[in-house]
Design a binder for these strands. Sequence first.
DNA 1: ATTTAAGCGAGACGGTACGTCTGGTCTTTAT
DNA 2: ATAAAGACCAGACGTACCGTCTCGCTTAAAT
Lengths: 224, 224, 224, 224
Amino acid sequence: MRKQQTLEHAEKPKKRGRHRSLEAKSAILKATLQLLERESLRKVTADAIARRAGVSKATIYKWWPNKSMVALDAYLAGMTDRVATPDTGSAEEDFTEQLKSLTAFYTSTLGRLFCQFIAEGQSDPGFLASFRERFLYARRDAARVMWRRGVDRGEIRSAVDGEIVLDLIYGPTIFRLLAGHGSLNDSESEAMVEAVFGGLRRLDYQRRPQKKAGSLVKRRNGQR
Amino acid sequence: MRKQQTLEHAEKPKKRGRHRSLEAKSAILKATLQLLERESLRKVTADAIARRAGVSKATIYKWWPNKSMVALDAYLAGMTDRVATPDTGSAEEDFTEQLKSLTAFYTSTLGRLFCQFIAEGQSDPGFLASFRERFLYARRDAARVMWRRGVDRGEIRSAVDGEIVLDLIYGPTIFRLLAGHGSLNDSESEAMVEAVFGGLRRLDYQRRPQKKAGSLVKRRNGQR
Amino acid sequence: MRKQQTLEHAEKPKKRGRHRSLEAKSAILKATLQLLERESLRKVTADAIARRAGVSKATIYKWWPNKSMVALDAYLAGMTDRVATPDTGSAEEDFTEQLKSLTAFYTSTLGRLFCQFIAEGQSDPGFLASFRERFLYARRDAARVMWRRGVDRGEIRSAVDGEIVLDLIYGPTIFRLLAGHGSLNDSESEAMVEAVFGGLRRLDYQRRPQKKAGSLVKRRNGQR
Amino acid sequence: MRKQQTLEHAEKPKKRGRHRSLEAKSAILKATLQLLERESLRKVTADAIARRAGVSKATIYKWWPNKSMVALDAYLAGMTDRVATPDTGSAEEDFTEQLKSLTAFYTSTLGRLFCQFIAEGQSDPGFLASFRERFLYARRDAARVMWRRGVDRGEIRSAVDGEIVLDLIYGPTIFRLLAGHGSLNDSESEAMVEAVFGGLRRLDYQRRPQKKAGSLVKRRNGQR
DNA sequence: ATTTAAGCGAGACGGTACGTCTGGTCTTTAT
DNA sequence: ATAAAGACCAGACGTACCGTCTCGCTTAAAT
């Protein structure tokens, strides 16, 4: 007797044929992660994953279009809650804690994958989109909550665009991570957040009168 | 140490054997750039470069260790002063102008190569180092000058680390460039610089008394 | 009460579970034949057979050890009496008619399968044996009857080994069929049989005296 | 000064780049033969050939379209004059000797390849054509010479088509070789040739009067 | 009526070969 | 000496097919 033709996935799908082997799936993801701990994504081959997972290459390519996607899945599965989303009562402190936690993660073996994904995305726009969709936006949503709290509490200038806030806080770290200039550690993270919150501008500085002085500040009007 | 025939051919052309090397080299660089306008670095093959340049693959590999390095040379040769280093009298304005100019460049066909290099560097640390050495540090040196002027003039808080300033200004744009979230245009650039200079913190906000209040601001001391 | 363990199929088997689906069986054979009309055995896949027959691949492999055997069954089922075994009163005429009929069949879509089986057999000795057992020997038995009649009637030299007679008559056609040199049609068939019956030797030819003259003719004595 | 554009390979070709490695070529052919001594063509893989020959797979596929063609080349190179073309003064004896020699070869490890090629040809018409062109026709040309001599000498009935003669002599052996029914050895070969030359027909047999008697013998008129 | 032993369709799986491709090296002849 | 031509090696790629296995369902004999 066939039942749920209407609700695609009500209760239990119970499809006809042999079910997808969860052992195979998790073996693939696990093997992928293990290999990625030692080699860059580019150097890890589909064959190696298959061999290590005790799985056929065909099985990999049945479920994933290419090894990058396997790695992305492995990454997402492997990083369950490894970066905190603190709520200390102070947005600045929240961001500081979060950036420290995130930096610690990104400099770990697993976290280094972040860079590999960005790299892979540069020659595969579809993959980059997937990566944004499935990883980046989730992270940003969490961070946006912290920003929102700061704005609501009156800590953060509401004039500054939320997206820019996020990029201001995370961009520098990610830049350092990718380009490898500049160190990454707790105190750098603290300094970055402090700088972003405090701003560069010296408050007692008196601008000399200029033709276009101030124009830059005022201009910004709702593009995007 | 590399031989650098490229820039030092003024003195003595009179070498033994055949010396078509200069045409060959510039043909290689030119062909590389042309190919990179249409395809990512990964998809441009050494064979394609050789074919287009009318050159033997061996010639390429005689002078460069791999195709990424060819591309880097092509990039450096092709981008002579395409990003301005303005001096308006105001550091904020300087950075704004520069970021706008840089964004315009980075979103151009040639500029997109920046991302390709970062990507390539993720699986080739040696290349990443070269890229930093030969491109990134040059840019940063120029930018550091602008920062220095701002500090000297009293515009920019001297407490903020210069390297962090640079990453704060360029990091967000580069992050957007690489990850593809968020738009990049003049007004975004202006808003970013404005935000970095002004800071996120709302000046009239009164921190509630907290256990660790202020600690973050002061801490920064000899990390790692 | 169970009795018929000895007599494989005495009366009615009536085994316990669900019976073998005859629809599935005939659908498989039919689909196989249809596919083999368009592609060689090697290019017809088990998946394609299953799909076309509306049957599971497992069902195929439950009843047949591999697709060659399926094809052999399909072939045997499909060629019920498509080659005549004439009895005209003359062995030569019988063979001529039969060879014409057989050539017509072997050059037909279904008949071409003969070659596929021979081909398959070259890398699968077990299959070749089955093919001989189930097809070839049956054909040869029929042909041997024609030969026997000829011998009994005094038409055919009894000194010539029956097996050789058969191979002499069918071998040339099958060779042409497999190698594709030489045409196959009624008049070729007639000419072949005529040549086999008439022999190549010119009767009025006088052998020059030779050391070993005649030795070949006489020798043949009971080896193997 | 170069002149010989007309004479394809006059003197020395001296092409520009690196020449085709004869070591690689002969290593490939040798490795292929060695592997084919133990496994059927279907089971010998391109990878195995490459590995054994110490050669890259790309090199194989650069010069041959597929492994069957490699095997054909290996076969042709490996069988230099392994089958004699005797000239004893008697066509029947020539054919007997030749068939014995050929049977000995075809039942050897290398000779077994003949069957593999015929088999491969059944699913690859292009290959079959190559095989005919490069192997079969050469053999047949040699055999045709023997036939011609027999005809000229008056040994062989000139009424019998030469192609049919060849198929009559070789067809039965090849049929046995491929189908595996019937033994193959010197005495069988002798018996076959004797039967072909002597014909099946018993000379003292008196045909009963028949409607179409004799028609078959006369009909043959220039089809083909 | 219930149990139980098949058989079945669906389709995932491990294995393995295929033929292609690219990166980077090496060899030969030409300049 | 150095270039162009181009063959070469190593090895990953993604696809295809084979024959096996697992699942949930169906059928029919045996209980």
